[in-house]
Design a protein around this nucleic acid. Sequence first.
DNA 1: TATGAATGAGCTTTCATTCAT
DNA 2: TATGAATGAAAGCTCATTCAT
Lengths: 203, 203, 203, 203
Amino acid sequence: MPVISPRKMQDRSDSILDAARSAFAETGFENTSVAQIARRAGISDGLLYRYFRNKRDLLNEVLRRFYERTMLDLEEIAARDMPFLDQLRDLVRRHLQTFVDDVDLCRLFFAEVRTQTDYAVSPIRQLNQRYTSIVVGIVQKAAARGEIRQGIDPRLVRDLIFGTVEHRAWSAVQGRQIDVDKTANDLVDIVMVGLQPVKQERL
Amino acid sequence: MPVISPRKMQDRSDSILDAARSAFAETGFENTSVAQIARRAGISDGLLYRYFRNKRDLLNEVLRRFYERTMLDLEEIAARDMPFLDQLRDLVRRHLQTFVDDVDLCRLFFAEVRTQTDYAVSPIRQLNQRYTSIVVGIVQKAAARGEIRQGIDPRLVRDLIFGTVEHRAWSAVQGRQIDVDKTANDLVDIVMVGLQPVKQERL
Amino acid sequence: MPVISPRKMQDRSDSILDAARSAFAETGFENTSVAQIARRAGISDGLLYRYFRNKRDLLNEVLRRFYERTMLDLEEIAARDMPFLDQLRDLVRRHLQTFVDDVDLCRLFFAEVRTQTDYAVSPIRQLNQRYTSIVVGIVQKAAARGEIRQGIDPRLVRDLIFGTVEHRAWSAVQGRQIDVDKTANDLVDIVMVGLQPVKQERL
Amino acid sequence: MPVISPRKMQDRSDSILDAARSAFAETGFENTSVAQIARRAGISDGLLYRYFRNKRDLLNEVLRRFYERTMLDLEEIAARDMPFLDQLRDLVRRHLQTFVDDVDLCRLFFAEVRTQTDYAVSPIRQLNQRYTSIVVGIVQKAAARGEIRQGIDPRLVRDLIFGTVEHRAWSAVQGRQIDVDKTANDLVDIVMVGLQPVKQERL
DNA sequence: TATGAATGAGCTTTCATTCAT
DNA sequence: TATGAATGAAAGCTCATTCAT
């Protein structure tokens, strides 16, 4: 009995994950059956269990890949040597774009993963932390460079950036389109100079 | 002439809602069976259906009560005649406190309701909109009074406030305590004057 | 504690039966709940059980009354002293009219009663037998009078009359209207002279 | 490559249908649970649903098989080139025999299917129409050939034949044996020459 | 390696009937 | 006498997972 080549195994694993991703995105985790995923992937139910321990494992892996892919972009931006203001704007823009492009996977994350009881110790959470800590990093760098004032809690900025984008994107899910560039500009504007009416130099 | 007193009916309705709230919070909507809720409430399956039309009705009612209760506080703050800065700080503090006090219900809302495909037309969404529009309202009033600069999109401020608080509270769910007063102060500080280092007059 | 008058009891029993009849006719036996009947009758669920042992008892009583009422008409016709031909035609017409007027009750009988396992010993069956034996009776009388030829099995005529009417009425239930007079004439015509083409004296 | 042989699948399908037929016949459609059928067939509940879409599908299939089997015989008789009289007698005999052989299935049809509100659009009704239209056809042919007199409504003859047989068989269900040949002869006799006492040529 | 047959627990909701009040 | 609260069984159907083939 011929053993399948590692290459072929990898291809199959990928195609299962593809099938799972699109199926979960379309109908949600609970409303997607393993049989549906297997059919989309062109294999039998049983074989799927050779590649993934169970249905939830599949979900976690789908989201892990999503995160890793998205993170690369964000980390690339964070690695650039550029003024904080511009860097922040690029990050916000990129993050917003992720929501626009993959709203279903985002919803999946919020609905099915973040609320799991074992989320605190899950590998997905570690990815999420690594993801959001990118903003913490550039804020610390900006503070060190004097680009922003002292005494700012970088984690609050992180929550502000991700929270705002998420909330905005979420309301955009219900109906209205989202203008990525304008939203990024407006948000960064507020974050930098605040709402106060006093005259001040723009950076 | 009802066979049980209205008081007893009310008590029972409350105890069912209590049971539903804690059960949903612990195991999620899908993974909680009506039978479990009935057992927690100390009644039979069938009787539950004399108080609530169906399982989803139960969820909606749990969240409606939560919202109405919370909203009263928020609207009371919004109705006060006080400087925008202080009003915003009170609102943020109150909203944060809600998360601290009722993290289970918040999780329930985010996980089970907001992600439903029919959320757009659900009664809960209307409550949520009324809830968040409170901030839109005070921002508009502040703009009219000249307390903040022109050209600010009030809905972006709304997303910023609720998104940040939510994100912060969410990370607080996983472990760490949250310092409500400090967080509120810091957030309002950033929102008002931004991160920029330039010297400026505080309001 | 005042005992209710026999008269009032009778009235109530009647109103329950009325409610049951119309409810069963509209939605069928299985799809009608005891609570619905009680509500229609303006009483509580529990009280209904003071008047009828159970739901099926109610059904039997509804049909028993229906039969008795219908039977009176049929027996009145059978008691008349008139030529067999005319008498038969009147009976057929009357029976057809019953289907037209009370198709729902007829359906109820066929669907819910005649197929009960204990139908063979039920009071309803006795009524049904008494009902159909009316035709047996007039056939025997006609044979004795020489109005029909010898050697005819009266029970076969009974089955012919009731079977044909039922079958015709049943197909009429699905859509098409039924012309009572024409159908009665045509049926009696065939029954009397048959289909054969030979010239013969009409009676 | 199916994991079980087509032969075995067919056998199982048959055994499920057998189980369903006898269970439905004994306790009726509503009062038979899918679990009961599965147990009779020696399989699990779930497996049954790989063979039949749902409970009603099972009922339809049971009756469809019955009809198709029976119809073949009837259509074979109708296709023969023989005098109307003899053909009719053969049809009646055959139809009566069906009742004698499969009284349970007949009861099932009358009690559970024909009385359904959606019977008018059910596949079973189409089979029934095709079945009964066989008699309509031979009557029309007989009329064209002059074997029966003009002005006869073939559909009334259809109702007469099927109605009478059904009624007779039905009363036979409760107890008494049925003499197929005699009944067929007597019925055809009446249908051809009627009840009238006048002298006439027999065909 | 691969299949898909087979399992059976699990779910929401309804409702006839009883009985405390 | 009258109420309607309370019970709890029952039912059709789905599906993650296992395992014989």
